[in-house]
Amino acid sequence: MKYWPAMLVLFLAVLLGGCQEDKKQHVKPSEINVENLPDVRAFQDEFTREFLQSTEETREGYYPFLSGTGAYKMDFPAGGIVGEKGYALEGERFESFRIGVKEKQIASSINFKYKIEKRNNVEVNLDMLKTSTNKSLQFEKLSLKGRDIYLARFENESGAYGMVGYIQNKLSTGGVSAIYTSECAERTKSCEDINEINNNKMLNWLKSIEFVKE
């Protein structure tokens, strides 16, 4: 019987410890002093910081990003910033923005657009992406948890290249389109290797887009 108080203390300690742990995880980067943030482009930009959920990497070089509608999350590169002047948000219905990414030798620009979109509209959306990118794109479908991803690669005459992606929520309404364009800064031979790596980066980024359950 005399163990009870000790047990209670222990129980409380565990409980409180748990609480603290919880609290720690919930501090958003936008609430942290600038000097304590990672010294990378994404966190140094005030507007971009608002979207980042934690200073802990999701994988090397990427941080957790939550869209302004709250509808989807994804990995966000350390060298990226979200354009504030071109940012548009209309309630939970529509959101669009452009991200600029600065990496070694590679400059990229990605245009993201989210709309409340039904599952049976996929073909229409792929068509629209083809129309607005002027490409005879060949989409490949990947079925991941909770979402279908359609991806197509493209190349421009100017040497820029990239990937068009459309991600459809399988469980609810919502679709994200992304047009990802990259360019190697120097036209050297080393670009070939770097572009190869960058192609994989694009793929992994777009695959990281996941819809958030209500």
């Binding site: 060298g79 910033i81 979200v82 354009g83 504030e84 002047k85 071109g86 923005f97 452009r98 991200i99 600029g100 990414v101 600065k102 400059a107 990229s108 620009s109 100017s158 364009t181 990259s182 360019e183």
Partner: peptide, 15 residues
Amino acid sequence: MNNFNLSRTNPDAIY
């Protein structure tokens, strides 16, 4: 982008 030599890394460059 070509004519004004805009950088891809700055999403607000046009403005």
